[in-house]
Amino acid sequence: MSARSVPAELPPLPLIEPATTADLIVAFISSQMEQTGFSRIVVGLSGGVDSATVAFLAARAVSAGNLLAVRMPYRTSSPASETDALRVVQALGCRTERVEITPMVDPLLGLMGDAQGDAAQVRRGNVMARQRMIVLYDKSVEFDALVAGTSNKTESLLGYTTQYGDAASAFAPIGDLYKSQLRAVAEHLGVPAEIVTKPPSADLWPGQTDEDELGRTYDHLDRTLFALVDRRWTVERCVAAGLDRDLVEWVATRVARMEYKRQMPAVAKISLRTPGIDHLYPRRRPGSRR
């Protein structure tokens, strides 16, 4: 291929066969439950496609009666989000609870000094995400359940998550699915079409959408991530294949910069045997089941 030739099309989206993928994830969830000795799952249900998909998968693994979907709106959350969350509850027949986080978040922000300026929105978003985490983990004790994670691969690689907030979970069923793959799995599972097709949003403030905030479409992000991460292409090769240089460089930098969010904190090695470095065990083993 000469340097000047124009690529006919962009690098592909990562395709996946939704039925097999769904089966594997359901088996994964069942295995997590069996190995830990839990039989119930708690999931935070936002009304978006990620948590809806996790709820559908969890209901298949443990049955709807053993699934608690917690709706946790903030006063600025879109009412449509809650309508969509209720669609999922209705479709599954799972248990649900509503815990509004406004009376938790607002006094907290007030006490900490609700800063103005650039960082304010990020700080508010982080506090909301972490407040929801606190509610979910509290419910998990009450309901005797594990918290299912709802982070997908696109946001995990881009670090578009709040550490110890929405990224906190006992296991991550959709953590290796790009947004576009996730939508295919969602459709296969019968997640209501309104939820699958609406613009993804963290719903931290009115009118927010992921694509506006990231400044890129999921279509372009997934193509770029798939090329850079899964196929190990260089930035130059992505650009030669027709992807926008700014996009590719932004994604590559962001994946590198957000590495810390995907790992346990580094431990200062002092002893002969250090957890995570040379004290290495599978998470579940005989004796770890409660």
Binding site: P14, L15, I16, E17, P18, A19, T20, L24
Partner: peptide, 10 residues
């Protein structure tokens, strides 16, 4: 271990 289930790569 399975990779990329059901996809061309898998």
């Amino acid at each position: 271990p399975a990779r990329a289930p059901g996809s061309a790569a898998g």
